[in-house]
Structure formats: C-alpha cells, structure tokens
Amino acid sequence: MKIAVTRLKGKEKSDASRCRAYGHECFSVHPLRSELRETEIAAFVDAASAGEFDCIFFTSALPAKIIAPRLSTTARVIAIGPQTAKELRDYAIECETLTSFYSRDFVPYLGDWIRRKRIGIPRADVPNQNLLDSITNAGGIVREFRCYGLEPTGEDLPLDDADAILFTSAMSYAKARWTPRDTLLVMAIGEITAAVMNAGGTVPAVIGDGSLEGSLSALNAYLQKNGGA
C-alpha cells in the first residue's frame, strides 16, 4: 500500500526504508509545523549543564534532535522510543529507552527511584497534565520546558495517490485538513490518537502500538485478515 504519514513540516524522518521492510511505500504529509522557542531551549540546556536534573525525559524525537548537540549532563536520560534514542546517541548521549511508546509508562519504568528526584522534560507546548501529575504523585519533582510550539500548516493534505493515511499523533488528526473517502484506509499510530479520532467521528481501521513499526505490523495483520490490499 501507499501510505501518507503525518509528520511535522520540515521534520520528515526516514520512514521510507522502514515502510519497505513491511512491504509498503510511504510519503509525508504535513498538518503541523514546529516553531522553536530558543529562550526555552536555552533555559533547559543551561539547567541541565548546571546539574539541576537527576533525570531527563525526552518524550519525542524532535526535542532530542534539537537539544542533543548542545546537551551536557550527568543526569539519567530516558528516551520514549528507539528513534528518540537514536537522535541522542548520534551525539554520544547515553540513554535508556522506555519499554513502551507512551509517556504514562515513564513513572512505572522508574519505580521507587523517582522519589525526590528532579525530572526535566523538554517537550512541545501541548498539555500533558497526566504525566506531570503522575511524577508529582510518585514523589518526583518535575520541571517541563515547552521548547517548541505546534501550529497548523493550513494545507489540504495531498491524498489522491494514497491508499492509506497514518495519523501519528492526536493533534496531527485534530488539525489536519483532509477529505475522507471510502477507498482510503485510515490508521492511528496508537490508542491515544485513536481515541481522539473516534471522538472526532473517524474510526481508524488499524491501530498501532504507538510506533511506526507497530502500526505497519498491525496493518499487515489487518490486510491478511481482510484478504490483502
């Protein structure tokens, strides 16, 4: 299948080879663009360099890509998935990789270690109060730095040649300008995105585990069950 994958405008990833490994083609479409906030980025980098964190949690690959070249820290570093970890390791930042693709699993991953630990989170300007509350309730001390904003591009997604569309975040769905059609298979990268899609009246046929690979695996299982593309 030819899959349109929602990505931040100008921040496309190397999805093509990963899709080919599952027997599909893909191309990027852009419902959102990022707007970097240099003051907030610099504040995070300065705090990390000053040893103000015991742990740093990168919740997506973009802040890792932005910050890793400037980061100097002895803190424990956690990446939400292998692509985020790769961005960090490309700049020799040692990190652990969360065992799922959901930030809700950050606190269970750290366990009792989190008590009285100072946690720094560089991230998008998108509310995630559940993550902050879970850290505080577990006895951690959290500071988030909203290092970039997400703004709609206002572009109609070019889907005429697509057999499927994969929404990679709840916001990419909520802010997308697109036209559903019967022949377009709609996919959600994970259950949180799927919940927002369902609430918006779009029922995804395929739901991944929060990763591109997991979504492609789920797609292949769906196609096998339903007699192929």
Results as ranks from 00 to 15, higher is better:
residue 145 F to C: 00
residue 175 K to F: 00
residue 114 I to K: 03
residue 99 T to E: 15
residue 49 S to C: 10
residue 201 G to C: 01
residue 54 D to L: 01
residue 159 L to C: 03
residue 209 D to M: 06
residue 200 G to V: 15
residue 222 Y to Q: 05
residue 124 A to M: 10
residue 96 E to W: 06
residue 56 I to Q: 10
residue 94 E to T: 15
residue 63 P to F: 04
residue 210 G to N: 06
residue 92 A to N: 15
residue 169 S to E: 02
residue 14 S to K: 13
residue 120 G to T: 13
residue 212 L to C: 10
residue 133 D to M: 12
residue 220 N to P: 09
residue 163 D to R: 01
residue 81 G to Q: 07
residue 187 M to S: 01
residue 214 G to R: 07
residue 210 G to K: 04
residue 146 R to Y: 05
residue 140 G to C: 07
residue 101 F to G: 13
residue 124 A to H: 04
residue 124 A to R: 05
residue 226 N to Q: 04
residue 218 A to Y: 04
residue 13 K to W: 03
residue 43 A to G: 09
residue 140 G to W: 05
residue 137 N to S: 15
residue 42 A to R: 02
residue 163 D to C: 07
residue 16 A to S: 08
residue 92 A to V: 08
residue 89 R to T: 03
residue 59 T to R: 01
residue 28 S to L: 04
residue 171 M to W: 05
residue 153 T to C: 00
residue 143 R to E: 14
residue 15 D to T: 15
residue 187 M to I: 02
residue 213 E to S: 06
residue 216 L to R: 07
residue 57 F to A: 12
residue 114 I to C: 05
residue 75 A to Q: 06
residue 41 I to W: 06
residue 131 L to Y: 02
residue 168 T to D: 12
residue 74 T to C: 10
residue 187 M to Q: 00
residue 169 S to P: 08
residue 210 G to A: 07
residue 90 D to K: 13
residue 206 V to E: 11
residue 25 E to Y: 00
residue 175 K to D: 08
residue 120 G to L: 11
residue 212 L to M: 10
residue 87 E to F: 05
residue 198 N to R: 15
residue 225 K to R: 15
residue 74 T to Y: 10
residue 219 L to V: 06
residue 56 I to F: 02
residue 45 V to H: 14
residue 41 I to K: 09
residue 165 I to E: 08
residue 64 A to V: 07
residue 53 F to K: 13
residue 116 R to Q: 10
residue 95 C to N: 13
residue 113 W to M: 04
residue 20 R to Y: 14
residue 168 T to A: 11
residue 67 I to P: 08
residue 9 K to S: 02
residue 18 R to K: 14
residue 199 A to Q: 12
residue 46 D to G: 15
residue 75 A to F: 06
residue 103 S to K: 09
residue 150 L to Q: 06
